[in-house]
Amino acid sequence: MDILINGKKVKTRKGEHVLEVARREGFEIPSLCHHAALPPDGACRLCLVEVEGPEGKNKVTTACTLEVAQGLSVRLDTPEVAANRKVVLEMLLARVSDSPTLLKLADKYGLLEMRLVPQGEKCVLCGLCARVCTELVGAKALTMEGRGTETYFQPPFGEPAKDCVGCGSCAFVCPVTCIEYKKTDRTIEIWGRTFERLACTECGEPLDLTPEHRDLIRRRTDLLTPAEMQLCGGCERRTTMKTMQRVVEGQQTLETARR
């Protein structure tokens, strides 16, 4: 199915959304709440595009939620898109004024003057942290709490995150890096919890793995034993190397080396 982006004919597959197609084709569309591994959510409203309708009745909508369809034609930089995107950006920047991500976008999309009162918040409420935690990692440690302007993404009731496994994915996907994730030699601190870092059973080097996360990962496959998971990459490779050496030296056959 072909669609038109800024007049350019582009190949798409059924079920795709305009944002992913456009980015694949090299077009730039800003967004904060989109993630390739998650279904579209349409929360940040930055990825606005204009859909050409019949009789000049065009409609501005978000590219992330816009499914491709036969005859679809979108434009990315119409005055209507630019004006609305600028106001959305202004709203976000009023909320979180010091985010380099947002300041860069403001620069790029011509937001020169701030008319709104700064709110001094840190989070843009894109929701990626909670969606990643719930829909991908499967820990379900974070939730959207409150309503209206008093909305927060946090562990239930704002208490230390009971179901968190300390994997740090939320902090990684956060577009404005507002999730505090602290790593010491022995611990990982996040969402009010302090997790023990497992150490390599061979060399003692601390791993980026907590016992809780290890157990969660093991639920996804039947291939792993806890002992195998608790070696650092270097020690694992040395074991691999030794096995290979034994094979080369003829002490072991390839079949047994393959466990």
């Binding site: 940040c44 709203m91 976000l92 009023a94 409420l125 309503r147 209206g148 302007t149 008093e150 909305t151």
Partner: peptide, 22 residues
């Protein structure tokens, strides 16, 4: 009223209402 009753998910509604209210 709406500022408190918005679901808080999307930017224009939530932040727009906050700004308007101010």
């Amino acid at each position: 009223f709406l500022k408190e009753e918005s679901c808080g998910k999307c930017t224009p509604c939530r932040e727009g209402l906050r700004a308007m209210s101010g």
